[in-house]
Amino acid sequence: MNDRRLTEQVRIVGSGLLGASIGLGLSARGVDVIVDDASPSTRGLAIAYGAGRAPAPDDAPGLIVVAVPPDVTADIVAAELERYPEALVTDVASVKLAPLEQLRARGADLSRYLGTHPMAGRERGGAVSARADLFVGRPWIVAGHDGISYRRAAAIEDLILDLGAVPIEMDAADHDRSVALVSHAPQLVASLLAARLRGGSAAALGLSGQGLRDTTRIASSNPALWVQILGANAAEVAEVLRPLRDDLDAVIAALDDPEAPASRRIIADTLAAGNDGVSRIPGKHGQDGRFTALVVKIDDKPGELARLLTEIGEEGVNMEDLRLEHSPETKVGFAEISVVPEAAHPLATALEQRGWTLMEAER
C-alpha cells in the first residue's frame, strides 16, 4: 500500500502480542519493519507470521518501538537511544510515569523519546495471537513531556494513524491514573471473581450465562505480565480499589441483614450507581450511548451465523456489536446483536419474518 504516512524504517524490539501486531499492521502497509527480541525463537515466530524481517548490520531505523514488559522498558529504551543516536524511540508499555522518571534519572536523551500506550489487546499473548487490525479504532495514548517537541515526535503520530488507531494526548501521570480505573483495577476485579469459580460444582458452572462470561473474560490474562503492570502502577490501582472495598463491605452488611431499614436502599443505590457508571462507557466511534440488544437463536451448524449477518445487512441495519453463546446441552447457539435503539424493533420484526427466533436478552 502506498497511502501510508510513515516513511521511516521501523525497528520493533519485543515480538509479543503488541510488537507483532504493530509489525503486521505496518508491514501490510509496505513499511520496512525490523523485528528484534531477546529470544531468537520468539523473534523467529513473529517473522514467520509476517511481522517484519530480522535485523541486518546496515539497519538505520528512524523510529524504534519498544514493546517489552514494564519492568525492563526503561532499560531497553535507554539502550536503543544509545545504539541509534538519530532515531526516535517510543514504547507501548501500559504504565508511562515510571519509565519516564527512570529515563530522566539516568540522563537519557528525552528529546528523542516519547512514551505511548495503545488501548488494545487480547486475553492471549504472543505472536500467534497478533493481528494487523488490533488497533483499528482504538485509543492510543501519547504521553507527552517537556523534553520533546511535537515536530520531533511526528513519526509516532504517523505510526498510530497508519495502524488505524486514534491518538490521544495525555501526560504520564494522568495516563496512569486513567488506566488504573478503566483497565488495571478491572483486571483484578475480574480475576477475583473468576477465582471464586474454582470451588463451584460442575452443575453450578453448567448454568453459566453471558453475564458471567462478560465479567470474567479478562481473567484469563497472563499473570506474570499483570504482576509487572500492577506493580508499576500500584498506588493508582490501590486508590481505585479502596472505595470499591468500602462499597463491597456496605453491600455485604446489607445482605447479612436484608430486612434492616437501610439494607434494600443500599443494594438499590449500588445497582443504580452501576447503571450510571456503565452508561458513561463510550460506545462505537467514541460517542456515549447505549445500544439495544437482540438475541437470536441460531442452529449450531456451518453457515448459520454467516446467513444471519448477511440478512441483517440486507435489512440495512448497522450492527454495533456481536456476542456469541453456545448452549451446553443442545446444538443451538445465541447471537446477541447490538444495534441503535431505533433500529431494534424493525430489525426484530424483519428477522422473525425471515424465520429467525428471537429471545429476551439476558441481564
Rank of each mutant, 00 (worst) to 15 (best):
70 P>L: 13
187 Q>V: 02
42 T>G: 08
179 V>Q: 10
67 A>M: 09
133 D>H: 06
244 L>E: 10
87 A>V: 02
270 T>L: 02
126 G>Y: 08
189 V>P: 01
129 S>E: 06
96 K>L: 07
3 D>Y: 07
274 G>C: 10
15 S>E: 08
45 L>W: 14
30 G>R: 09
275 N>R: 14
349 T>H: 03
232 A>D: 11
136 V>L: 05
205 L>F: 03
20 A>F: 15
177 R>V: 08
121 G>C: 01
22 I>L: 11
58 D>T: 11
63 L>W: 00
72 V>G: 03
282 P>R: 12
213 R>D: 13
133 D>C: 01
322 L>R: 03
225 L>A: 09
81 L>K: 05
278 V>K: 13
235 A>N: 06
111 S>H: 06
238 A>K: 13
212 L>S: 02
218 I>L: 05
249 D>W: 08
249 D>L: 04
161 L>H: 09
94 S>H: 10
161 L>I: 14
117 H>C: 14
67 A>Q: 03
197 L>P: 14
160 I>D: 02
331 K>M: 15
258 P>V: 09
312 I>S: 15
193 L>Q: 05
18 L>W: 05
44 G>V: 14
156 I>T: 01
62 G>P: 08
139 P>D: 04
340 V>I: 15
115 G>W: 03
10 V>G: 04
217 R>Y: 09
225 L>Y: 03
283 G>R: 03
197 L>M: 12
335 A>W: 10
289 G>S: 09
47 I>L: 09
60 A>R: 14
5 R>V: 00
2 N>G: 15
134 L>H: 00
116 T>K: 14
73 T>H: 00
33 V>I: 04
104 R>Y: 01
346 P>E: 05
260 A>Y: 04
236 E>D: 09
293 A>N: 08
266 I>Y: 01
217 R>C: 12
334 F>H: 02
39 S>T: 10
155 A>K: 00
258 P>M: 03
283 G>A: 09
235 A>M: 02
126 G>Q: 04
229 I>F: 13
196 R>S: 09
236 E>W: 08
108 A>I: 00
321 D>H: 07
190 A>N: 05
350 A>F: 05
